[in-house]
Structures are given as structure tokens and as C-alpha cells.
Design a protein around this nucleic acid. Structure first.
Lengths: 211, 211
DNA sequence: AGCGCCTAATGAACACCGTTCAGTTAAGAT
DNA sequence: ATCTTAACTGAACGGTGTTCATTAGGCGCT
């Protein structure tokens, strides 16, 4: 049983990634193993290494698909929404996505290659692409801010949403009842944004006084 | 070589934890193994299981020590500081601690027992204890807010700082130059707090800061 | 039809891992 | 000196990632 050619490289790759995602969803990241994935698609262990460089590589490719799914979810949530509401849409969609695919989301952030030497380039590009949505929204809301200010605010807000999501998924929130993370995202965005305006006004006021 | 009694249970436990922490610091969480820890303290694998229930247990105990160190760092950073500055002190100390012990910090959040069934009770207590510092500070700053408001704000702010820290440690920030996370924490706290109060108090806050 | 070639596919092998437990051995009691 | 006992061991089991010599099936050629 060799040279079966039942499936092309691309088909095999897709089959393996789907099987791995199913394993991940059902049993968590610790259960991801080359042998299990290989068995799931009806091939031997060695064959997996003809398709992926190693298990790390497979994980990175799962992460690529996860990021793409996240991107779609964000865009879908924000479609036809005014800039003012879009931030909260993004936050809700992010939170929802993470809760829907907790293990995929965890893999996205917990997976590291040994020595961190080869975090792929496209990963950075994909994350920058996600950031750009928030930056774009902020730019629409604050037309006269510098790029540095926009970037800082986007990353700060996104980190906040990310942190809320992470603590929620780790059950380390337990804010009395539930409905916690949604409220926290609301609180974060509302107060950060009005605080942003407030700080600017305050600075202007102070500078006006001092002149 | 049996019944050596060179060390008491407590000594052995401390030795093992220290060795494990050194391994963790130098080679990361993936390199933590019972065999390595056992060899490092000059005992056999089996002996480690007389001291710890299993590797999970050892990890939880490392986490306990990490949390205690974090608590000390936070308290030290905030000593004799007015409530107005204490929040930023906490944030900076948290960020510093995570950067000083990246692998210990990562273990704190990435380690999960199978099926999440036995996340220890003391862990929740320790985290609640950390939260209480922020809540207490917020209570001093906002004397007429409800407990729910204080709790919500504390968790939101802390999640934000946590998210910033996490993204920084994953090298997924790259905010142009560095000095990113510190600026982001400043931005988060300033804007969230002034956004909470409204514009009027923002001026006071800024003036107080400049003194 | 028969013959080779080539390569997709295999799975045994290696070095690790967590965990267990029957067995060993030394310290202290008798 | 012998016994008891428990601290300690390390081989064993089933799992992991990864490699690579071997195999066998599809394909082109004669």
C-alpha cells in the first residue's frame, strides 16, 4: 500500500487540518498528536511528515485557519454598522468566537515554537490585519488624531478585550453571576473612549490655562 | 540507598520546587519533566511521586509560589503611594513581574488540569486577594460607587493590564519602537478612570499627576 | 504483456514523556 | 543480631514526536 494517490497534497492537508481541528475541539490542545491525526485520516504517522514539517507546523496552520475564521466573524458582525457601534460589535464578535472555539482560540495564543525563533511572518501580517480594523474604526471616530495615538488606542483597547476574553475562558472571572465579560467590554470601550475625549479636553484646558 | 532521610518532606518539596522553577526559567514550561526535576535534586523519578501527587500538582505549587511573589511585588510597588498613583504602580509592577519571570507567568495562565475539574480552591482565593487590592484602591478613589461598580471596574482594568502583558510577552505587539506596554497601561488607566468620572475630574487628575 | 523506475506510503525504531508499583535497603526498635 | 518498617528505587507500560530504510503500487517504455 504505497503510491495510492487517493488524494492530492492539498486534499490531504485539508483532511488532516480538519481532523486536527475536530480533535482539538473535542479533546483540547493536549490531545493533539500526530498519531491521532494520522489515524483519523486513514494514513500512517510517517505520511503526516510528508505533508507537514512537524507538529508545530500543523499547529501554525490550524492557527492560520482560526485567524481567518475570526476575521470573517469580525467583518460579519460589523457590516453596515456605524463606526460608533462597530467597536462594540468587534468586541462582542471576538468574545463570541473565543467562546465558540475555546480550544482553537487557546492554541492561537499558547502555541509557541521552541525558542520562539520561527513565529511565522504571515502570523504577524494576519494580526496586523485584525488590528487594522480597529484602527480604521478609531480613525473614523477621531479624525484629527495622530497615527501614533490611533495605534496606541487600538492596541490598548484590543488588549483589553483580549484580556477579558482570556480571563473569562479560564474561569478566573466569576463576577458574581454571569454576563460578566459582555458588561466588561462595554465598560472598557465606553469609558476608554469618553476618557480619551475627556483627556484631550483636559489637556487643552490645562494648556489654555497655562498660556 | 533507601530510607536516607537526608531531607525532611518539606525540605524535599522546597528543593524540588526550586529545581523546577530553575528548569522553567531556563528552558520554558515544555521542558518541565518529572525526570529532570528528580535528577536535579538527586532523587529518582518515583520519589517525586511521594512528594507530589503528579506533575500537575507540582505545577500548581509552582503557581502558588509565583502568585505569592507577585503579591509581594505589587505590595512593594504600592507602599506609601496615594491611591491616585497606586493603580499605575500595580500595573507597572505586574508588567515588570511578568517580564522578569515570563515562563512562570505563562505557567500561571496556561496550566490547566485535564477537564478543568480540579482547579484548586486556594488559587481562586489567591486571585481574589490580588483583585481586592485594586478594588480597595478604587474604593478609596470613588467613595460613593456601588460594590458592583467597583468590582466591574477592577476586573475590567485588571483584564486590560493582563491583556497588555500577555500580548507583550508573545511579541505580538511590536508598537513601532518599544516602551509600548508601559504606555498602553498608562493610556488604559488614565482614560478608563477619567472616562468613568467624566471630564470635570480629568483636569484635577492631570493636575495632581503633574505635581 | 512485460519490465523497471520512481515515489507515495509505511511502520519499526529511537529517545523522550508521565505514572505505577514490586522490590530493595537502610535506619531505628527490640 | 535480628526484625520492622518505610524511604527509596528503577524497571515497566503506554503514550509522545520524529526519522528513515523499506515496500509496493502507478506510470511510461519497450
Amino acid at each position: 500500500m504505497a503510491r495510492r494517490n487517493d488524494h492530492s497534497r492539498e486534499e490531504l492537508q485539508a483532511m488532516a487540518l480538519s481532523a486536527a481541528e475536530q480533535l482539538l475541539d473535542e479533546q483540547g490542545g493536549a490531545a493533539l498528536s500526530t498519531r491521532k491525526v494520522a489515524t483519523a485520516i486513514g494514513y500512517s504517522v510517517g505520511s503526516l511528515y510528508l505533508i507537514f514539517k512537524n507538529l508545530d507546523d500543523l499547529c501554525w496552520q490550524i492557527n492560520a485557519r482560526t485567524l481567518q475564521g475570526l476575521k470573517l466573524a469580525l467583518d460579519e458582525a460589523a457590516v453596515d454598522q456605524p463606526a460608533q457601534l462597530r467597536l462594540k460589535c468587534y468586541a462582542q464578535a471576538y468574545l463570541n468566537y473565543a467562546q465558540q472555539w475555546p480550544h482553537r482560540w487557546a492554541l492561537l495564543y499558547e502555541h509557541r515554537s521552541p525558542e520562539d525563533l520561527d513565529a511565522p511572518e504571515w502570523l504577524h501580517a494576519a494580526i496586523a490585519d485584525l488590528f487594522s480594523r480597529i484602527e480604521q474604526t478609531l480613525r473614523e471616530l477621531k479624525t484629527d488624531e495622530s497615527d501614533e495615538e490611533i495605534t496606541l488606542a487600538a492596541r490598548t483597547l484590543w488588549s483589553g478585550v483580549h484580556g477579558i476574553t482570556m480571563l473569562k475562558l479560564r474561569d478566573k472571572l466569576y463576577l458574581g453571576a454571569d454576563a460578566g465579560p459582555e458588561l466588561m467590554c462595554e465598560s472598557l470601550i465606553d469609558r476608554y473612549m469618553t476618557g480619551w475625549s475627556g483627556t484631550k479636553q483636559a489637556v487643552n484646558a490645562l494648556q489654555g490655562e497655562q498660556l
